[in-house]
């Protein structure tokens, strides 16, 4: 059998996944932290202040990567949920549900840092602007998925119900993305593009890309840790968990 296919099948085994997650999550956290530390050093100490916004533009280096993560994680959660619903893969249910708290965390960061930036730049902490409002709805969707998953005792039925909500909720993502184009928005339009031309000076971009990469790697650590916790919860009565508990405590 192809080694990749064999590894994929092995990963479906709860004890194997536990070993895999406990082994690689700390590395992802450390690597993500180092990348973000390098990005933040550039953002705070290397890049000059903006000629109009002054130092407040430095908030962008945490706001933008968090906003991208908030949407990317939701898309990933919906993808895992769809795979779990179609092929009934338990690990995908676990991974989908592990996405929700991490995604909610990045959405919260997006909203709070945007609000903190908005006060000096817009003169208000909050405005019912299309981009802000749709991002707030995204946070509510994340909270809905977390709430629904924890409200049903049967883990598999809970994951199916919450996964369905995630799949339906994915329709919000293009609305968030194009909200600044479709409506008159206080929020600025697209400034930074992954593949096209960015409206930011090139000297200001490298710390942002470090932050984007760092938040992605950090998320891998968070996803593995949260999935490991849920995996242990589901397998709580099994012998391998008892052996592990005896070995680690």
């Amino acid at each position: 059998m192809n080694p990749v296919v064999r590894w994929f099948h092995q990963l479906g085994s709860p004890p194997y996944f536990d070993r895999f997650a406990s082994r690689w999550a700390p590395w992802a956290y450390v690597l993500g932290l180092l990348m973000m530390a390098w990005g933040l050093y550039g953002a705070l100490f290397v890049v000059p202040a903006d000629y109009q916004q002054g130092d407040s533009f430095r908030i962008l280096y945490i706001h933008v990567p968090s906003a991208w993560m908030s949407m990317a994680i939701f898309a990933l959660m919906a993808l895992y949920s769809a795979i779990a619903l179609i092929w009934r893969i338990k690990l995908c249910e676990i991974l989908a549900m592990a996405c929700a708290p991490a995604g909610a965390a990045f959405t919260l960061i997006t909203l709070l840092t945007g609000s903190i930036w908005g006060k000096p730049m817009w003169g208000t902490w909050w405005d019912w602007d299309p981009r802000l409002t749709t991002e707030l709805i995204l946070l509510f969707l994340y909270l809905g998925v977390i709430g629904l998953y924890n409200a049903i005792d049967d883990r598999r039925a809970a994951a199916r119900a919450a996964g369905l909500l995630a799949i339906v909720g994915v329709a919000l993502l293009p609305v968030i993305h194009y909200s600044v184009t479709w409506w008159n928005s206080l929020h600025q339009g697209q400034t930074i593009s992954l593949f096209g031309k960015s409206h930011m000076d090139a000297s200001m971009l490298p710390p942002l890309w470090w932050m984007v990469a760092g938040t992605h790697v950090w998320f891998v650590g968070s996803l593995l840790s949260r999935a490991r916790a849920d995996n242990l919860r589901r397998e709580s009565g099994k012998d391998w968990v008892a052996r592990l508990a005896g070995a680690t405590q």
Partner: peptide
């Protein structure tokens, strides 16, 4: 706008700290 920048970065650190500790 230093106080705003510090507040934003504190929010980022606190939420990611929770994201690390909770699992």
């Amino acid at each position: 706008y230093l106080p705003y920048v510090i507040a934003a970065y504190c929010v980022f650190a606190i939420v990611l700290g929770w994201d690390y500790v909770a699992p």
